[in-house]
Design a binder for these strands. Structure first.
Lengths: 134, 134
DNA sequence: TTAGATGCAAAGGGTTTGCAACGTC
DNA sequence: GACGTTGCAAACCCTTTGCATCTAA
């Protein structure tokens, strides 16, 4: 009666992908990672790179920088404002919280960059979905 | 010697698209907008919707919610941190500024949502590109 | 041994684009 | 009338997936 579910297996491909990603702070694309990995594993396929990036993201080992979908959403309100993305129902809601422009100045002072502004999305559960959970 | 460059022409299609987008706060996808516009202009094409959305975005009339590209970038650092996107060289840089988790609490209190965290990207010109400008 | 992982190539799905016809200024 | 805009459809491009094969455990 062995109930061990099997689980994830360690592979050379995933090790190399993670090592390369950890060794840079350039926030590379999947294709760039693919090119780097090919130097060590010339016959690796792009599909394997994608599968492992998704796995590593799901494991919390790396982060994917997107709005959570491959397609765009559009906002009829051109004024900058914060958004809330419900992780359950996937709705995007506007937030009443004013934009904290003082942080722009903080970062400009720290970095020397010309900071024009920032976008922020908060995430969690909206009121409706939160109720359904409990 | 008329030097007027020509410029943008007003069309029914763009008017309808903008009106629909302004009348909702659901942050719709291009496809949803397409379906709505078709109720008024049954033979409008998806291509026209996309062209106008891009134009309206460039004009600052609407906002597009993405990381500025159709493809993902990956971050080998799984800890939450802020990013800076240079509008000129398109590089994504890590920021030393600590994450302002106190804003999460503010928003939770205001909305009743279960706020788990937030992501933020600042934008403007990085140090290198800033120099090149002047 | 065995089920997860890979390589390959085809399929998917959102977005863009070439072109002739059309509409705005 | 000139030239920006549209509709249509094909092209693009990033990402996912089916399947036979390979391999970690």
């Amino acid at each position: 009666m062995n109930s061990t579910p099997g689980g994830i297996r360690r592979t050379k491909q995933r090790d190399v992908i993670l090592r390369i990603l950890r060794s840079t702070d350039s926030h590379p694309t999947a294709d760039w990672i693919y090119e780097q990995v090919r130097r060590e594993i010339p016959n690796i396929s792009l599909g394997t790179v994608y599968r492992n990036l998704n796995r590593l993201r799901d494991l919390g080992e790396i982060r994917e920088l997107t709005y959570g979908s491959t397609f765009s959403r559009f906002d009829g309100n051109p004024a900058n404002h914060y958004h809330f993305i419900c992780e359950k129902c996937r709705r995007v809601l506007d937030l009443p919280e004013p934009v904290h422009t003082e942080i722009d100045a903080l970062i400009a002072a720290q970095t020397g960059f010309a900071v024009k502004g920032h976008r922020a999305e908060f995430y969690g559960l909206c009121d409706d979905c939160r109720r359904d959970e409990s």
